[in-house]
Structures are given as structure tokens and as C-alpha cells.
């Protein structure tokens, strides 16, 4: 277990090598958040929606703060697959799936924490109607954190499948672009899922993309009551199980069939 933990920490060290990039990301996300909220304020002036504006603001800020968790972007790993650097990883006494899982997890968690903390501080200082609201209750906050953790595990497993597929296609960009599009749309990053038509929400909420941020945010704002938290976790666990099974199977097959050419 220690080796996977060390890999996790290593990815984090790599993340903080480029503090300037993180700072740039934070500022960009803050401006993005402000623009989105200004848009929703304009929308609400015209026709108020069922969801209160303060909840929308909270939704937008949490989405922006944890944006880094959404995108599949460990180009380092993808490059290893494309250029054959993965040959070295195969010479390590590690389970490749676990090794990559740890790296992806570190990038998503550490990368977003680095950005989330200053952003949420900033958002909490904004006046009401612009900034982030407090959680519905303390248990709601704890449930949201738990949901975020499960959602993250789920997303890492999903991304490891993308990784496994790109070992077959070599060029990862097509699949990554598709995944990112589905992700930003159905995770609620472009438009909060709560503003989707009622009938759509029934389906979209069950999709894996909604598990990462949408489900925990609903727990945070209290839109999902505490009594329904269990079923949220259950959906997340089911997806996690499915993705783990597919990913592990795919990697096992890949390791046997892989060809690293040249040099």
C-alpha cells in the first residue's frame, strides 16, 4: 500500500512545482465564477426559477473550485503511453492499475485542493447573492464531503478506463475531448443540473458524471435531504464498482498484449 501512497504524494510534489500555473488557474476560475453568477442574476431578473439564486451561486462556486477534478488531464501519463515511456512502469513491481489510479487521484485531489481553498475563501467573502452560502447543516456538510470522496474515486476509475483505451488507440486526444465534453455538460459545470428540465434531471442525475460534483453539492445545499443521502452514496458506489471492474479487466488485458516499439 505504501508504494501507492508514495506515488500519490509524488504527484502532489509535481503539482506544486508549478505554483504560477495554479495561481493563474485560480484567478481564471474566479473570473469565470463571477461572470456565470452575473449571467444567472440577469436570468433571474427576467424569470425567477424554482431554485433560489443563493443556491445557484453556491453551486457555481463549488463547481469552479473543484473544476480540476472534472477534466481528464494527466498528459504526463498519456505521453508515456504515446512515446513508450510506459516500458519503465512495466519494470516496476507494482500493479499498474493501482499505480495509475494513485497518480490520477493525486492529480485530481491535490490539484483541486490547491485551488479550492483560496477560491472558496474568496467566494465566502462576497456579498450574499454573489458569494457561497453556508452548508444546510453540519451533517449535510459531512455527507457532502463523503459524497465528494466517493465521487472522486468514481471519476479516477473512469479516467483509468480512458487511459486503458488510449493504450489501444495511442492518440488519446479524441477520446479525451469526448469525455471532457460529456463531463462538463452532465456534471453541471456548464449549466447547473438543477436548471435542466425536470424530466431530464431524472436521468442525468443517475449518470456517472453527476456523481462527482452535482451529487455532493446537492447534499451541501440541502436540496437532497439527509434522509436521501444513503441512496446518493449507493448510486456512487454502484458506478465505482462498475468502473473498477471494467478498468481492471482492461488493464490486465492490455498488459499482456502491449507492444512497446523501438529503442
Amino acid at each position: 500500500m505504501r508504494k501507492y501512497l508514495s506515488t500519490f504524494l509524488m504527484r502532489w510534489k509535481m503539482e506544486i512545482q508549478y505554483r504560477g500555473a495554479a495561481l493563474g488557474g485560480i484567478v481564471c476560475q474566479m473570473v469565470f465564477g463571477l461572470i456565470l453568477i452575473a449571467l444567472y442574476r440577469a436570468l433571474y431578473l427576467g424569470s425567477p426559477q424554482a431554485m433560489p439564486l443563493s443556491s445557484i451561486c453556491t453551486y457555481v462556486w463549488l463547481q469552479q473550485a473543484f473544476f480540476r477534478m472534472l477534466l481528464s488531464s494527466d498528459n504526463d501519463l498519456m505521453d508515456k503511453i504515446r512515446t513508450g515511456g510506459i516500458a519503465y512502469e512495466l519494470c516496476r513491481p507494482v500493479n499498474l492499475y493501482g499505480y495509475y489510479y494513485a497518480r490520477i487521484g493525486a492529480m485530481k485531489l491535490m490539484g483541486s485542493l490547491l485551488r479550492a481553498v483560496p477560491m472558496l475563501l474568496f467566494a465566502s467573502l462576497l456579498p450574499a447573492g454573489w458569494g457561497i452560502a453556508a452548508p444546510a447543516s453540519l451533517p449535510a456538510l459531512l455527507c457532502a464531503l463523503m459524497g465528494l470522496g466517493l465521487g472522486l474515486l468514481c471519476m479516477c476509475a473512469l479516467e483509468n478506463i480512458t487511459m486503458g483505451i488510449s493504450m489501444r488507440t495511442i492518440d488519446f486526444r479524441g477520446f479525451q475531448a469526448l469525455l471532457n465534453l460529456l463531463m462538463t455538460t452532465f456534471s453541471g459545470n456548464i449549466l447547473p443540473l438543477t436548471l435542466f428540465p425536470e424530466s431530464w434531471q431524472q436521468v442525468v442525475q443517475l449518470l456517472p458524471y453527476a456523481q462527482l460534483l452535482d451529487a455532493p453539492i446537492r447534499l451541501y445545499t440541502g436540496e437532497t435531504p439527509l434522509s436521501a443521502a444513503g441512496s446518493t452514496f449507493l448510486i456512487q458506489l454502484i458506478w465505482l464498482g462498475i468502473f473498477l471492474a471494467i478498468g481492471i479487466h482492461l488493464w490486465q488485458k492490455n498488459t499482456r498484449k502491449m507492444i512497446v516499439q523501438g529503442g
Binding site: 509524488m10 515511456g85 519503465y88
Partner: peptide, 12 residues
């Protein structure tokens, strides 16, 4: 040792 490839982390 693969003289053509890298095993160490580039950025750290």
C-alpha cells in the same frame, strides 16, 4: 536502463 527513455520524474 533504457538509454532512450526516462524513468525519473521530469519536474521534481
Amino acid at each position: 536502463v533504457f538509454g532512450q527513455r526516462m524513468q525519473l520524474w521530469w519536474d521534481v
